[in-house]
Design a protein around this nucleic acid. Structure first.
Lengths: 362, 362
DNA sequence: GATGGCACTCGGGATACGAGAGTGCTAAGA
DNA sequence: TCTTAGCACTCTCGTATCCCGAGTGCCATC
């Protein structure tokens, strides 16, 4: 009962089961895979594998299916990474290079992974590092509302709305609704000249400063400004500092959800828990982060119950970080049933992640 | 065989079926709904209704279920709009008012509608009207890349990447990848001083101009600039005009997809086609646009086969436009099985759409 | 340690059957 | 003319039964 053959049997079971979606018995194992031994021998090996927890039988007299532990062993020691075919590579290249902006890149990456793997793709928006303030722009919109646009040195752009209260004397609320805006600015409470000057002063004060020095620099501006304007200036200053300081890494896009519903994927518990888990973006994000921070060859794999979420107990997650300078700024992954094509999925995720890393600004 | 009673029967069938999800027979109809007649009478009415195509029986000896045509009649003539309860209204208010930016508002609106209706919510991003250029910012990122940030007079902010080719002499590609950016700007090919001057010139040229006048204004700048810089300047100018001119109304967010998988919703064809239809954002967008442009009390309803998409043949779409000044700038909707609670769904969609209209910058 | 043989188990498909729900129709009543 | 009661008929669905086949575990043998 050689150890190598037992592993070969496990590999054969995994590959056959992934392919046929049916419990695999000793006979087909000897027939379809070139293990030169008889079914009885295989049965002995299978008994040992079952004993060790790598496979299980759904009911007494059926074939065996891999357990989570079995898949884990397969992924760690048995799977041969199968590189993508070169047409596939080219397809990735061309499809992604047609993207016109960041949203588009990530959206396409998601659809691509979903299509390559036939599963659900998850793409996290890159979280961008902070730096100084490059430019601040104030645009009055609506009556008592100010759109504050912040451009950081790294090229990050954020926009927030500032409610300017009743008049210039009132204390402005610091955080309000942020949005692109509507039509004609209403030059009521806020006149362009004053705003322009305020903007110029704030920009000048911020020039060359680091984020940590900004509050102080702004305080000076607030102090030096007309008393009626001071509250507004302070409101803007606070909002800018707040906006630059806030991390904005909580966005995720999904693609290929429809793949879950395809007939080939039957989940014991139905797919309702799976979909629910996917909608819990915060939790999902945590999972991905955890996963990508694992050591390994860049691509992390969580199998079945390994990811703590109940909804994902029947699924595996394959994820990889991506990012400009070789360090991870965001994560890309694929989620499918534990019974998935691990080598293929890993290859796809890795290929797209690498492309993203290459194309991302660094 | 009075006409009113027949309508009452139809209404009773719809309401009962929506509630119980089971074909409704003549007996329960007389028992549960206060029609003061015998089952036999109802049967006659039902025969007439079936003849007219408003109801059908799934198999010979089962109760009746409404057809699309039946739901249509119900929605148009029989449904009483049921206003939301005041706690519900308050919940909407508070939940939406906690949003911190535009993305957040729309995301919350979606989740809200999904939760209120127990169905899938669809929210289109508002398309914003164009105007002049408020400010143009150039941020060098990476080696030969330039982030171009465009802020329009209406407060719309767009960002695009410009590939600056090999050196300042090369013709820059006009459209490249747009994205927030990575870390340290690399002051290689593009030096800050030149960029600053170029930016200042372009901004000055654009000040006060309308979109249609921009190309001309920019052309003057390009002509007046150093010859080695001209291609870069032209590249930027083109990109800006292009960006401002492009409509950006193609984004949709979904929420509550998991609701589709809940046990209560059984689709004949499975939900795979439904999910697929929902992923076809372009088509979906077309449907919503068509729907919101219909006359009516603001909320449009498409029932079953009325929406041409095959995948949505078993679903109904309830949608409403929303937008700052009473005119529609985007659309909000809810998608569920044809057997849905129309009055409730309509009320929810309308309430949230109204809130959005109120809170949106105008 | 590998193999052939064999009895045993169990899931799943096919079949049969009865209960129940609902219908349409007819004839009688208002 | 509309409503109602009665009745025979149809069809779905759940339950029970049976049987086949796949697969196993174990034992004796090579």
């Amino acid at each position: 009962m050689s150890e190598e053959r037992r592993l070969a049997v496990l590999r054969a079971i995994v590959e056959d089961y992934v392919h046929t979606r049916e419990p695999v018995g000793s006979r087909v194992l000897t027939e379809r895979h070139g293990l030169g031994v008889s079914p009885a021998t295989i049965r002995n090996d299978m008994a040992a594998l079952e004993e060790a927890g790598y496979i299980a039988q759904p009911h007494t007299s059926a074939g065996r299916i891999p357990t989570d532990k079995g898949y884990r062993l397969f992924v760690d020691r048995l799977a041969e990474v199968r590189p993508l075919t070169s047409p596939q590579r080219r397809a990735i290249e061309t499809f992604l290079s047609e993207a016109i902006d960041m949203d588009d890149v990530l959206g396409r990456a998601g659809r691509l992974v979903a299509q390559l793997t036939g599963q659900v793709a998850v793409v996290q928006y890159p979280s961008l590092r902070l730096s100084g303030l490059r430019h601040l722009e104030l645009v009055p919109v609506g009556g008592a509302r100010l759109l504050v646009v912040v451009i950081s040195d790294t090229g990050r752009v954020e926009q927030r709305f500032l409610d300017v209260g009743a008049g210039p004397g009132a204390e402005p609320a610091v955080v309000a609704v942020d949005t692109p805006a509507g039509p004609e600015p209403d030059p009521g409470a806020l006149d362009e000249g004053t705003l322009g000057e305020l903007r110029a002063r704030l920009n000048a004060a911020a020039a060359g400063k680091r984020l940590s020095e900004l509050p102080q620099a702004f305080a000076a501006v607030v102090a030096g400004v007309d008393a009626t304007l001071a509250p507004l200036a302070r409101g803007i200053a606070d909002l800018v500092v707040d906006t630059l300081g806030a991390q904005r890494e909580d966005r995720i896009v999904l693609a290929g959800t429809a793949n879950l519903a395809r007939a080939e994927m039957r989940f014991e518990q139905g797919l309702s828990p799976v979909l629910e888990a996917l909608e819990e973006q915060v939790v999902l994000l945590g999972l991905l982060t955890e996963l990508a921070s694992e050591p390994g060859r860049g691509v992390g794999v969580r199998i079945g119950h390994e990811n703590r979420l109940d909804g994902l107990a029947e699924t595996s997650v394959v994820a990889s970080g991506y990012g400009g300078d070789g360090d991870t700024v965001a994560i890309l992954g694929s989620i499918g049933p534990t019974r998935m094509d691990y080598p293929g999925t890993i290859a796809s995720v890795r290929a797209v992640a690498r492309y993203l890393s290459r194309v991302l600004p660094s």
